[in-house]
């Protein structure tokens, strides 16, 4: 086990930020901590890294208790923080070299690692640039390079794609998968469910400082009753017809908003066929039809009754 968090409690006065939070991370996994803003993801990360004192609970990393003085454990951890944490006074190369230098003393080895990190985040052309001259996306890449240059076994990325353009975001996500393929275990926090779905092998959904669900994305989706969401472009439909549709077998809910008929149905039924037959039988004209499988947002919605981005 790479990380084991047991019954972690952290209070800020009366506010309980982490409420008996427990989860673990196995070697080689990409574990996503998913939750809305303020759910306790960053607090959990800070507690895991001993950056924050916690009131109760146990944290073990690499099988050893994590404390502020656990320097042996820290040696194998790479941290990419939510805010870009680099020195404005140093160039791109110097920044990576400095942070790598905190872990690797040997100059030649460090130079090799720094060059690799620069190549990894594709900042070769910006080596001599100062951070203030870099765009938001490039800064984020520099931030990542500073955290991973020393080739850690465990990489913790705290919302590394906040305020990043789609192109840079894709590069960052590809990079994370690549790091994992090289053998690093990754803990990735985000409130972007698409990112978490895309790269994480296991997902821990957190809300109000508690783990409300965890598993692979398939396992999480299997937890909920929603099986399919069908959206049909319908130009006009009567209230009576909607009521009849709601009574069809396997249909969970029917809404008609902005000429969009949204039907949520149970798993395992041939719902699309039922809907289309109903529309034909009632001579209801329709346009485009979409069928979607449930997302993590649907999982979150069904468990908590609110949207991930509420």
């Amino acid at each position: 086990m790479i990380i084991q968090v047991k019954n972690l409690v952290k209070r800020y006065g009366d506010l309980v930020a982490l409420d008996h939070l427990s989860f673990n991370v196995k070697e080689g996994e990409i574990v996503g901590l998913l939750g809305p803003n303020g759910s306790g993801k960053s607090t959990a990360i800070h507690c895991i890294l001993s950056l924050l004192k916690y009131d109760k609970g146990d944290i073990e990393i690499f099988g050893k208790k994590m404390t502020p003085d656990a320097y042996d454990v820290k040696r194998d951890i790479g941290l990419v923080m939510q805010n870009v944490a680099v020195f404005d006074e140093l160039t791109v190369y110097e920044n990576i070299n400095y942070f790598c230098g905190l872990y690797v003393r040997d100059r030649a080895e460090r130079k090799r690692l720094v060059d690799e990190a620069i190549a990894f985040v594709e900042l070769e052309a910006f080596k001599k640039f100062y951070p203030k001259k870099l765009s938001g996306g490039l800064l984020r890449r520099l931030n990542i390079a500073c955290g991973i240059a020393h080739k850690p076994k465990l990489i913790i990325l705290d919302e590394p794609t906040v305020a990043v353009d789609p192109q840079s975001r894709n590069k960052i996500l590809e990079g994370i998968e690549h790091l994992n393929a090289q053998g690093a275990t990754i803990v990735y926090t985000s409130h972007y469910m698409e990112e978490v779905e895309q790269i994480c092998s296991r997902i821990v959904i957190i809300d109000k400082g508690r783990v409300i669900a965890s598993g692979t994305k398939e396992e999480l989706k299997a937890m909920i009753t929603l099986g399919e969401k069908i959206t049909v472009e319908v130009f006009t439909i009567e209230e009576d017809q909607l009521r009849v549709l709601r009574e069809q077998p396997g249909i969970m809910s029917v809404d008609y908003v902005s000429k969009q008929l949204i039907i949520k149905s149970d798993k395992g039924n041939n719902n699309l066929e039922i809907v289309l037959e109903f529309l034909k039988a009632n001579h209801i004209g329709f346009g485009r039809i979409y069928s979607e499988l449930p997302t993590l947002n649907d999982v979150f919605l069904e468990i908590t009754g609110k949207q991930l981005r509420d």
């Binding site: 800070h46 890294l49 950056l51 502020p68 320097y71 042996d72 820290k74 040696r75 951890i77 941290l79 923080m81 805010n83 870009v84 944490a85 680099v86 020195f87 404005d88 006074e89 942070f99 905190l102 872990y103 500073c146 955290g147």
Partner: peptide
């Protein structure tokens, strides 16, 4: 002041170099 910036201090603190 540069070293005491919160994020930089945290990043340094996470390293294996003793405080």
């Amino acid at each position: 002041i540069v070293f005491n910036k919160n994020d930089l201090r945290r990043r340094n603190f996470c390293s294996p170099v003793h405080a």
